[in-house]
C-alpha cells in the first residue's frame, strides 16, 4: 500500500494532480496488491522430490464444498458457497468484518512434468493441500545396434 504524502504548503490542485499522476502511472494491482484486488485465497507452492504441493489458505469451508478439476493443463479449485450471512446480516449487526468465506475460483497451470492422474486433495484446519505427483521419467533405453 502506498501512501501519498500531502504537502500542505502546495495548493490543493497541485497536490491533486500529483496524486492523479501517481494513480495513472501505476496499475491498480501495483497499488493495492493483485491478490487483494481479486480477493483470492492465498497459496503456497512447495516442490518436493516426487511431487508439487499447493497449500491454499481457505478457512471456514467444509470438505464437500471444494470442487477440484483438471482440464488439460489447468487445475481449478472452486467453491460455490454463500457464507449464509447475506440474509442473516439483516438481523445481525456487524461490528467488524475483515474476512468472509464465500465463493472463489483459483486456477493453476500445470506443466509437462506434472502427472494429471495422481492429484490428491486434503482439507484440514482451513488449509486445502493439493499433491501433484511428478511424471516419472522413463529410464533411458539402450537401443541395440544390429
Amino acid at each position: 500500500m502506498n501512501l501519498i504524502k500531502v504537502n500542505s504548503f502546495l495548493p490543493v490542485h497541485a497536490q491533486m494532480s500529483d496524486a492523479i499522476e501517481v494513480l495513472l502511472n501505476r496499475s491498480v494491482a501495483e497499488i493495492v496488491g493483485s491478490d487483494v484486488v481479486n480477493g483470492l485465497p492465498r497459496a503456497n507452492v512447495i516442490e518436493k522430490e516426487d511431487a508439487f504441493q499447493i497449500d491454499l489458505a481457505v478457512p471456514g469451508f467444509e470438505r464437500s464444498d471444494f470442487k477440484v478439476d483438471v482440464d488439460k493443463d489447468l487445475l481449478t479449485v472452486k467453491v460455490e458457497k454463500d457464507d449464509g450471512r447475506t440474509d442473516e446480516a439483516k438481523r445481525l449487526s456487524w461490528k467488524r468484518r475483515e474476512f468472509s468465506y464465500t465463493s472463489f475460483t483459483r486456477e493453476f497451470k500445470l506443466d509437462k512434468q506434472m502427472n494429471r492422474e495422481g492429484i490428491m486433495a486434503h482439507y484440514e484446519n482451513g488449509i486445502l493441500s493439493l499433491q501433484i505427483p511428478k511424471e516419472i521419467k522413463e529410464a533411458t533405453r539402450a537401443i541395440e545396434v544390429l
Binding site: 496499475s27 484486488v37 481479486n38 506443466d111
Partner: peptide, 21 residues
C-alpha cells in the same frame, strides 16, 4: 513451472511483484 492465478493481465509476471509484501 508456471502458475497462473487469475492475475490482472497488465501484470506481466509474479516476479514483478517480488518486492511487494
Amino acid at each position: 513451472m508456471q502458475f497462473i492465478a487469475a492475475r490482472p493481465k497488465h501484470v506481466k509476471s509474479f516476479q514483478m511483484q517480488k518486492n511487494r509484501k
